[in-house]
Design a protein around this nucleic acid. Structure first.
Lengths: 216, 216
DNA sequence: GAACTTGTTGACTCCGTGGTCAGGTAGTTG
DNA sequence: CAACTACCTGACCACGGAGTCAACAAGTTC
């Protein structure tokens, strides 16, 4: 029986072992960091939850900081990718609607990642200040430019693109960050699919109308 | 010289000493907790910054948790008080504009408090879940009711009061929580008075228009 | 299957942190 | 000024967490 187990389960190539373990650790770490923050998370806790000995975690990630940064770097990508899709050629009605929808979806499907990102910003972005100043800023400026072109084409009212983006970010992000608070206030244990939909719909409506975007 | 110091500076009544020290400690603690979170803040760090020995902090606050809760309890009050002003009799145009302005002001003037509150929610509100479920929820329901009456009076479009409040909260709160990110993206070292004003103006405009609130 | 690389792990060290305590000093009260 | 209370603080302790290490097991390569 033990032999069978060995041949069926344990016979893995080194490369696979590595891949699997990295994946497992990263995923557990993401959960813990989201829930308890960087300082509130211990390697032992991650180890326990991943059902691996602590030393094994340290074997794959030299330090806690390395592990955290690894988690973070995946997150920034997720966070930025949706923005790239907006172009000046699109009409803001579709573009913004689509963007808001993606953002809400992100809050729902990657709530842990979103929350880690938020927590990082909240405490002064000690670990990803550089990336903000380069990668995100570039994309931010580009997107502001897109909005400015929409304004020039009179597809929407002349409003500050920067602050508009902040508003969209924060109100969509809130469904991840403050999902718990929201559900408590609405007397639920957690947000349901419906809530995300209603939220997306409301944000879209208010933003479109608020920006004076005419229906095509 | 020393005598003079003693008689001028050090001759304080016990009651005053107590008051002053409590105040000092709470204020320093608020700063540290905002910047580094609960787990990232050490009593020694607070002590150093307050220029008091660690033991002295522990003399006034038995444990770190007690100190943190003390800081928190002040915050929830600040956070809730603005909401109370909105009533069904007011027209939403003035009421919402006023509320948004207050909220932004809060993000500016009490950014530390705001950030601690946000961080607390982000990590599941371990210390103020109870208060949310009682105090804040009561006020929340009341305010939703106010909005519902506005809708009934056709002063604004029929939209979910709950989600509208979430949207207002998050977008105003963002100026505290993500102020740093924002300033980085806009190439500043920190947000200026102008930014808060522009933000408040933009949020107000978008929300009012977005809710279909007619000008009187 | 021998030499080598990669993965695994328990025992250990080191250090920072929350919290205690005992012995002080400064204000208060009769 | 004597007795008392409130305030102050350095020395100390216990604990938990990050990270090391050495020895071993499992896969790989020829």
């Amino acid at each position: 029986m033990n032999d069978m187990k060995k041949s069926v389960i344990k016979r893995r190539k080194s490369a696979d072992i590595r891949k699997d373990n990295l994946q497992l650790i990263l995923s557990v770490a993401e959960q813990r960091f989201a829930e308890y923050g960087y300082n509130g998370t211990t390697i032992s806790a991650i180890a326990d939850q991943a059902k691996l000995p602590k030393s094994n975690i340290l074997y794959y990630f030299k330090t806690k900081e390395v592990l955290y940064k690894e988690v973070l770097s995946k997150i920034l990508k997720i966070w930025m990718v949706d923005m790239e899709e907006m172009t000046a050629e699109q009409h803001p009605k579709q573009a913004l609607r689509h963007y808001i929808l993606l953002k809400i979806k992100q809050s729902k499907d990657h709530s842990n990642a979103s929350r880690i990102f938020a927590s990082e910003l909240l405490h002064g972005a000690p670990f990803l200040r550089d990336k903000l100043q380069t990668d995100l800023k570039t994309q931010f400026i580009r997107t502001c430019q897109v909005i400015r072109e929409w304004i020039a084409k009179q597809w929407m009212n002349p409003i500050s693109p920067e602050h508009l983006l902040f508003m969209i970010w924060s109100s969509t992000q809130a469904y991840a960050d403050y999902g718990l608070q929201s559900s408590i206030l609405m007397g639920k244990t957690e947000l349901e699919d419906d809530d995300f939909e209603t939220g997306a719909e409301l944000i879209t409506q208010i933003v479109l109308k608020g920006c004076g975007i005419k229906l095509l």
